[in-house]
């Protein structure tokens, strides 16, 4: 089974962001970048499927600028067999990313596509669902477990989903799209020898033009602001003082 994994280059999740003084966007100059955490989980899951003998080949794909090849190399170091870079400097909305990924899916014909549930920069939580729609596949979003065999028929995958009320289990016909949630697995770190080996793994580059996709979208970013800063309050010395303040000052009890 072939697995395609989509990874996005985003700001490192530990970095505190700054808004540009002209409010046009968030300032990403000299900011530490990394693979989106949910994409790390996606890569890890693909690697585990390969280790279990379920997956035979893992292809990592990203859409983004030249620098995004770093994240593809990380995916290769973690266990992907080859990588595809859809190179563009444009700001690409989720719908256009999904169209580009569809282009790759049409060429690669994977049995399973794994994406993160959400990119921690735009917080969109859309691309996997959109890719599933465009390719006519079923979707298993917010996965905390992906299983084959185990109660589902040949040619299907069982996905346990983290939903607001608890957990939901569904079966999807393959090929299918799955998006990862936090509890799916705990990603490993790449080892130095694997990082070295990854440099020699195949990385192919293509473009939106070659895939026949226009990366323009229906949305315009008018302004980016810093939210109203919350002022820290006071430290209270005892439980009695806390209860008193909540009753008489904040009036929430």
């Amino acid at each position: 089974m072939k697995v395609l994994v989509a990874v996005k280059r985003v700001i490192d999740y530990n970095v505190k962001i700054r808004v540009k003084p002209d409010h046009s966007d968030v300032d990403l100059t000299n900011v530490k970048m990394a693979m989106n955490p949910f994409c790390e989980i996606a890569v890890e899951e693909a690697v585990r499927l390969k280790e279990k003998g379920v997956a035979t080949e893992i292809v990592a794909v990203t859409v983004g600028p030249k620098a995004a090849q770093e994240q593809l190399r990380t995916a290769l170091a973690l266990g992907a067999d080859r990588a595809i870079h859809v190179e563009t400097d444009a700001h690409v909305e989720s719908l256009a990313v999904a169209k580009l990924l569809k282009g790759v899916v049409d060429e690669e014909r994977p049995d399973l596509v794994i994406l993160g549930k959400q990119a921690i920069d735009t917080d969109n939580n859309q691309t996997g669902q959109m890719l599933a729609a465009l390719t006519g596949m079923g979707q298993g979003t917010f996965a905390s477990e992906i299983a084959f065999g185990d109660g589902v028929e040949e040619g299907q995958v069982r996905v346990t989903r983290e939903i607001d009320g608890g957990l939901q289990s569904i079966a999807l016909k393959l090929p299918a799209v799955v998006t990862t949630d936090l509890r799916l697995n705990e990603p490993r770190y790449a080892k130095l020898p694997d990082i070295m080996k990854a440099k020699k793994k195949p990385l192919e580059t293509t473009t939106p033009e070659a895939l026949g996709v226009a990366v323009t979208g229906g949305l315009t970013l008018l302004k980016v602001e810093t939210p109203a800063e919350r002022k820290g309050g006071v430290k209270v010395g005892s439980v009695d003082e806390l209860v008193d303040k909540l009753k008489n000052e904040a009036k929430v009890l």
């Binding site: 989720s94 719908l95 939580n125 691309t127 669902q129 959109m130 599933a132 729609a133 979707q139 979003t141």
Partner: peptide, 23 residues
């Protein structure tokens, strides 16, 4: 923007070939 809403609306948007605005 619940898990149900987030699950289905992007699919609708893509099928209609429009963007989706989240949350």
């Amino acid at each position: 923007a619940s898990t149900d809403g987030k699950n289905v609306l992007p699919r609708v948007a893509a099928l209609k070939d429009v963007s989706q605005i989240s949350e």
